[in-house]
Structure formats: structure tokens, C-alpha cells
Design a protein around this nucleic acid. Structure first.
Lengths: 202, 202
DNA sequence: CTTAAATTGTGAACAATGTTCAATTACACT
DNA sequence: AGTGTAATTGAACATTGTTCACAATTTAAG
């Protein structure tokens, strides 16, 4: 059976992504195989390779979706009137909760290393930057006298810091801790960092 | 040819670890295969499985060695007379330099996720804790009035933070930055965090 | 020194993986 | 109906981790 025309390539692409995501959520990245995804959508491996260059390509697209959902959560219900410090801390909470509620999809973003020959595509970098920009914008009002580059650096340090806590927390590298403890750690990091960052500005 | 008795199992174990580490250093974890390690030491796959339970087991032992080397670097040339704040910042520098100078072996520690059925062995956790303890001990004199649990939490937050910066720096997730930039970010994190942590104590 | 037993290493075999591509099938148009 | 085109297939290939019946060699016994 060929040329079934049941679905356009665009449709197959979306079906494959949805099926792949379900596998990831349920079984983690180890459970993801080309054959499984294909059979799940009623096609065969060959078809998958008509739509994606390879599994890495498919994973990149899953990750893009994950970044979109994270960005959505971080900008959802934005309350600009709120005290900015709380808003930043809230961002950290959102990130950590996101990672804990969907650990497999979250982990997939960082398990994937860009191979040397195929560098990370621009459209992907752009999505990652979009998430990061939210942090930067939220930080800005907290230290108005800092230069743009100082702000960028601080946002970077803070966000990477939260991320590190998240990683060590979820992968249990520092003992058996729940989401609550991770939230505590992150809050401690943000509050103390901000205290130094805001007070010591020129 | 069996029972060659050229080497004891202990010796084979060490040779295999050395060969595997060389492969990791040169090619990264993707290049590591059972057959490669075996042929490198002049034995066959079967023999490898007499000495290690499986590849995960072998990797755990490599990671243990890596942790030992890191611990060595962190406690080497200890100068207790030095200002403690500088000492802590120095620890961060050591960690970041370690990661950059040996990215493949460093990454291997975090790529490896403990499988559900075989939890991380105690001897491994102990080695990880040993590294972490150095941070805790160095932090203690900086905030004498804090409780033990507060100190532990702060050390955790700080260390995880440094680690996060390291990850995003090395994997280039936040653009193309060199070791110097990563060092800057880490220093920013530590200085500002410490400022808040030391000043605001009861 | 010969022979039997114990032990140590082998490598063929298996199931699974990502990936490719000649062959096959179904559709659209004349 | 017939013909060409394009979509889909799935068998095939190279690798992977892992196992285990067997073979080779050392050791012990007679």
C-alpha cells in the first residue's frame, strides 16, 4: 500500500510528534525508537524518514514544543502590577514545577547534545532565547542602575543556577529530595543573589 | 586460548578502566563500546563481562575515579590561612576549570542516570558526598551564626548553581561562551549570593 | 610423566537499534 | 483501460549490549 494519501506530510509530522511525545512522557527517552513511533501512527519506519531527517531531528522538534509550552507557562497570567521580586521568584517556581511535573520531556532538552557536524539550527536557538528573555525582562526593574550587559549576566547566572538546582534535584544527585526542597533551594538562591545584586549596584 | 593468566581479574579491571577512560576523553561517551574497550586491552567482550556486570557498571567506576580526581584537585594545596571567601570562590574556579579541561569525563557523570531497578550504590554516593562536603566546610566559616541545616542548604544551592552555569556554558545552551565567561558568571553568582547569605543572618 | 579436574577466556549468536533505498502499490490523468 | 508519477513499504545493513556453550590451558592427582 503506497500513496494512501490518508494524511499529508504535515499531518504525519504532527501525528509522529504527538506519538513520540507520549512515549517520552510514559517511558522516558530510552523508550523512544523509530519503529515504535511509526507503528503508533500506523506507518512504517521508512515514512518517518521522509518527514524527519533522523531521530535527532524529531527530538529537536519535540524540544521546541517543550520550550514553547514552558514559555507559555512563564508568561501566562502575567501580573505586571505585582512586586517584581516576587515575579522573578515566581518564574523560578514555574520552571521547577514544570520540570517536576514533566521530567522526561524536560530532561530531553538537556540530554540532547548537538553533534559537531550539524549545529543547533537557528529556529531552535531562537526558541531557547525567548524563554531566557522573560527572565531578563523580569530582572531589569530590580536593578535599574545596572548596565544591560550586567543585567544579562545576572539573568544568566540566576537562571543557570536554578537549572542546576533542578537537575541535581530531579536526578537525585544530592540525595532523595522532593519538589518542595528543590523549591526551597531555588528560593534561597534567588533571594540571596538578588540581595547582593540589588544592594551593591553603583 | 583460555586461562592465559597473563593478568589477574584485578589487573584486567584496571586495564579496562584505563582504556575506557582514554576512549571517553578522545571520543566522548558515544565512542565507548564494549568491543572497543575489550580489543584495546587485548581481550574479547566476554572477558569484560566477567569483570564488570555491564557497561553501566564500568561507567560508574569511571565516574568514581573522576570524582576522586575532582576531590583531589579541590583539596590540593589547601591554604587554610587564606580568606575564606576567596577559598570558596577558588573552589568554584577549580570545578569549572576541571569541567572545561576534561569535558567528556565530566559530562559522563551527569549523563548517566541510575536505572530504576539498580539504584546508585552506596560507595558511589559516598564519593559524591565527599566532594560536596568540601564546599560545605569551606562555607561554614563565612556565616558562623547560621544553623547546620541552613549551611547545608546554602552549600547545596551554591554548588548546584555553579554546576548549572557549567552545564549551560559547556553545552553552549546559552550561546557560544568560553571558559572565561563561565568563570565570570560563577563568580557573580557566588559573590552576590554570599553577600546576601552572610549579611542577612540573624 | 600422564591424566583428570578445575578454571579462564572465547566468539558465535541473539535481539534491538538507526538508517537506507530498490521495489511495490495506489492514485490521477489521458 | 492504460500509463506515469509519487508515496509507502519493509527487507537489508551495520552496530549495539549481553549471554553462554564450548574450548583451551593451568593445576592437581595419581
Amino acid at each position: 500500500m503506497a500513496r494512501r494519501n490518508d494524511h499529508s506530510h504535515e499531518e504525519i509530522r504532527d501525528m509522529a510528534l504527538a506519538a513520540a511525545e507520549q512515549i517520552i512522557v510514559e517511558q522516558g527517552s530510552d523508550g523512544l525508537t523509530a519503529r515504535k513511533v511509526a507503528s503508533e501512527i500506523g506507518y512504517t519506519v521508512g515514512t518517518l524518514y521522509l518527514v524527519f531527517a533522523n531521530l535527532d531531528d524529531l527530538i529537536m522538534h519535540i524540544n521546541a514544543r517543550t520550550l514553547d509550552r514552558l514559555h507559555q507557562l512563564m508568561t501566562d497570567g502575567e501580573t505586571p502590577n505585582r512586586i517584581e521580586k516576587d515575579r522573578l521568584i515566581q518564574l523560578g517556581q514555574i520552571y521547577i514545577h514544570f520540570a517536576h511535573s514533566d521530567p522526561h520531556r524536560w530532561a530531553l532538552i538537556f540530554e540532547h547534545r548537538p553533534s559537531d557536524d550539524r549545529p543547533t539550527p537557528d529556529w531552535y536557538i531562537e526558541k531557547a532565547m525567548r524563554v531566557f528573555a522573560v527572565v531578563e525582562e523580569t530582572l531589569q526593574p530590580l536593578a535599574p542602575r545596572r548596565t544591560k550587559s550586567e543585567l544579562s549576566q545576572a539573568a544568566c547566572a540566576l537562571w543557570a543556577g536554578i537549572h542546576g538546582i533542578c537537575i541535581l534535584g530531579i536526578t537525585q544527585k544530592l540525595g532523595d529530595v522532593g519538589e518542595d526542597s528543590v523549591q526551597e533551594l531555588a528560593k534561597s538562591l534567588m533571594v540571596n543573589y538578588l540581595s547582593g545584586f540589588s544592594n551593591n549596584q553603583a
